[in-house]
């Protein structure tokens, strides 16, 4: 199951797209996993809108969501100049999360099984392994009947 979207850099568009994801995958992804998927997507898109695009509503953000073999993949790319994600991530991992001024990158790192940026730092790739999806559970139950 795949969803792609290009949005303009406005936080309201993040809300709209995340609500769409919540509805699109609600019957095939466990509720607890869907929360984490939405959280990862929100933080990725918020970063792209706020930091990558300076909330310039003329700038575009491309997003891909893909559910395959019980893994959820998110790719988010903005038009910004990128950032030094290695140092930023290192700083956040070594700090007390309660004291941090922002927590988005730390949340991504804690909740994704794989997190990668391109060299420039304007494209993010996340992978999250899911529990057995509802679809798989239904299929197993049918086989056992």
């Amino acid at each position: 199951m795949k969803l792609t979207e290009t949005i303009f850099a406005d936080l309201h568009n993040v809300d709209t797209f995340c609500m769409r994801i919540r509805k699109y995958y609600k019957d095939v992804i466990d509720k607890r996993d869907l929360f984490v998927v939405e959280l990862l997507l929100r933080e990725s898109l918020n970063n792209a809108v706020i930091h990558g695009s300076n909330q310039d509503q003329n700038k575009k953000i491309q997003c891909l969501c893909l559910l395959v073999n019980n893994e959820f993949i998110i790719e988010v790319e903005d038009e910004g100049s990128g950032f030094d994600w290695r140092n930023k991530l290192n700083d956040e991992i070594n700090a007390d999360p309660f004291e941090l001024p922002s927590r988005g990158l730390l949340i991504l790192n804690q909740n994704a099984d794989q997190l990668k940026f391109n060299q420039r730092g304007n494209k993010l790739y996340l992978k999250k392994s899911l529990r057995a999806s509802t679809t798989s559970i239904i299929n197993v139950n049918k086989k056992n009947q």
Partner: peptide, 10 residues
């Protein structure tokens, strides 16, 4: 409340 993002935690 279902979701609180990093800004909400702030």
């Amino acid at each position: 409340t279902t979701m609180v993002d990093s800004v909400g935690i702030g």
